[in-house]
Computed example of a mutant assay.
Amino acid sequence: MKTKIFIAIMALALFAACKGRNGAYEVVNNSINADTTGAQSSAADTVVTEPKLVKTANMSFKVKNVQQTGDSISHLTAKLNGMVTHHEMGSTVERSQDVRLSDDSVMRVSAFNTTADMTVKVPSEKLEDFMSSVSHMGIYVTSRKMDIEDKSLDYLAAKLKLKNRSEMVAQQKTGKIKIKDPAAVLWLKDNMIDGQINSQKIDQAVNYSVVSLSFYQSNTIYKERIANDDPSVYKMPFDNRLLMALSNGWFLFTELMLGLANLWMLILLGVGVWVAFKTFKRKYPALKV
């Protein structure tokens, strides 16, 4: 008895939930149930005829010349009807030393390394050929990796959802379903667009594989003769410096004489005081000052 009461309560709850879920729209024609059943059966018959395999790969390797290898990879990608989506190359100075050649010039010796990163898209059926050709461009391969992800179920789910939404919009246009909230119609159409974009993204990922490449070369030594940037080394020869010192000494002497000439009154007064003191001391030797 208790089991029958529990089943009856669960049935009533399920009926109320379904009624509340369908509150956003109302059925105008009872034939929609048959249409919905037919749509579900036709959607179930929709299958992906071929697997949707998304291939990605990456490789790290050492080369003789980074710039030449980057150009070769770009040409190979174009030859295979692919596209380079990212290319970055940079050099970093690890050590540097200046060797003095003369007072005004030095030889700068620098050791720097050069690396590059590239991201390319190539047709998936040519991925193996591309990876093999690129690996032969390097001295040796540090790492090489390829992943394959099956997107068949995701693609099928997107297609089925898009078909169901398309049928609902068609029924709304013919009046079989009346959606009360206009925002719900707009959301449904936007969701259909998102589904189409996602399907196209999967198709594009299946048709073109993304390959990430990272390559580098041995450290390069570069020598260049540059001007000495130390101001203290820029001095005149000894003879010129001696003549300038004598000239500066004569200039200081003349300035001193001119300074004394400006003080002639004080000098004369001092001489007069000194003479008067000597005369007074001579006349009165017994007096103590």
Rank of each mutant, 00 (worst) to 15 (best):
M1D: 06
L12P: 00
N22P: 06
A24L: 02
N30T: 11
N33H: 09
Q40V: 14
A43L: 07
D45V: 10
V47W: 05
T49N: 04
P51L: 02
D71I: 05
A78W: 01
G82M: 01
E88G: 03
T92V: 12
Q97N: 09
V99P: 01
R100I: 15
L101D: 03
M107L: 15
R108E: 04
V109F: 06
V109Y: 09
A111W: 11
N113D: 08
T114V: 07
T119E: 11
S124M: 10
S124G: 10
S124V: 06
E125S: 03
E128C: 06
S132Y: 10
S133N: 04
S133R: 05
V134K: 02
G138S: 03
I148M: 05
K151V: 01
S152Y: 09
D154V: 07
A158M: 07
K163W: 01
E167L: 15
T174E: 05
I177F: 04
K178V: 11
K178R: 12
I179D: 00
A184F: 12
K223Q: 13
D230A: 09
S232R: 14
P237H: 01
D239I: 08
L242W: 04
L258A: 09
W264N: 10
M265E: 15
L266P: 08
I267F: 13
L268S: 14
K281F: 06
